[in-house]
């Protein structure tokens, strides 16, 4: 059954007022539109071979080439527009893989507890301490650097933070009384996870996905920059790599560096803003229901400055 519409509508109403989140969403949507309509938007097709004269190499911005040309005399704007596709594809699919793995591990660990939790969490810790990026570089270098391989490798290594977050959220949802009520009704574990745990962990997963996208985009760019990209696909990291290794700096061709660089920043910033905006709207802990007299009130009452690091109460058990 679908959740009833009011929560979604009320979510939209709050989200619309969150300026940071809206800016992020618009930035991301713009990037997606550019990637989808790349063939229509780009003035040239960067995959088509072009005839080049010496004047075309690192030509500064001009009406024919608004972002100038690169080392091969290709139009930077067109490459930039097509490059968005790779970044976004890698970002979306790799983060999807990460979040699915992280979600399954996090929910199982949090819900079942005991030995399973111990095992899964130690595994997560091990993955967490292994420096991700060198391992990604190694794995991509060992396999063929195709788009699929890059997606899989980034996805397989990026789930640790999601797993930890989802586990802690699962633990807190599991404590709530409606889960006990479901047990009292006679519901099994699978039913409880599907109807009571997952829907309440979902907002967190959504927020996390958006943030993981930005990580994947960065990883992909870094890989391409190191030359470990699918040679048949133009990506922003690859553009940077070519510009860097083929003398754009000495030629003073800043445009060949600025365009892909700004593209990466644009995407990462968009994801981060959207993720934080979503978090503020979705995180129930930041909601205030009605007048309540809590620790903050005590602090104000006593004329103390509010302490920023309010540690959650360790309940006596």
């Amino acid at each position: 059954m679908s959740p009833s519409p009011p929560p979604i509508r009320s979510f939209w109403r709050t989200f619309r007022r969150n300026r940071m989140g809206m800016v992020g969403a618009v930035m991301l949507i713009l990037a997606v539109l550019i990637a989808v309509f790349a063939p229509a938007l780009a003035p040239y097709n960067p995959y088509q071979p072009t005839r080049v004269t010496i004047d075309d190499i690192y030509a500064p911005p001009s009406p024919a080439h608004p972002f100038g040309t690169d080392d091969a005399g290709k139009d930077v704007l067109s490459s930039f527009i097509y490059g968005a596709r790779v970044s976004l594809i890698v970002g979306f699919f790799a983060s999807f893989i990460s979040v699915v793995i992280g979600g399954v591990i996090g929910i199982s660990a949090g819900f079942y507890g005991g030995k399973l939790e111990n095992g899964l969490m130690r595994f997560t810790d091990i993955m967490l301490v292994i420096p991700d990026f060198p391992l990604i570089v190694l794995l991509v270098a060992l396999t063929k650097p195709s788009l699929l391989n890059i997606i899989v490798v980034i996805g397989l290594l990026g789930w640790t933070s999601s797993a930890r977050l989802v586990r802690s959220q699962t633990l807190s949802v599991k404590q709530r009384k409606f889960v006990l009520r479901a047990r009292a009704i006679g519901a099994g574990n699978f039913h409880i996870i599907r109807r009571h745990i997952f829907p309440l962990v979902l907002p967190l997963i959504v927020v996390n996905t958006v943030l993981v996208i930005s990580l994947a985009v960065l990883n992909e760019s870094a890989l391409s920059f190191l030359g470990l990209s699918d040679p048949t696909k133009i990506s922003w990291g690859q553009m940077l790599n070519f510009a860097f290794t083929r003398g754009a700096m000495s030629a003073g061709a800043w445009w060949a560096l600025v365009a892909p660089g700004l593209g990466i920043v644009w995407l990462v910033l968009g994801c981060t803003l959207l993720g934080q905006g979503l978090e503020q709207v979705l995180n129930p802990r930041l909601e205030t229901h009605h007048l309540s007299v809590g620790s903050k009130m005590v602090a104000r009452m006593m004329g103390m400055k509010e302490k920023p690091s309010e540690v959650k109460a360790v309940s006596g058990d």
Partner: peptide, 9 residues
């Protein structure tokens, strides 16, 4: 307040 799942009708 706690024993009903807040997102179920």
């Amino acid at each position: 307040y706690e024993s009903l799942n807040p997102i179920m009708t």
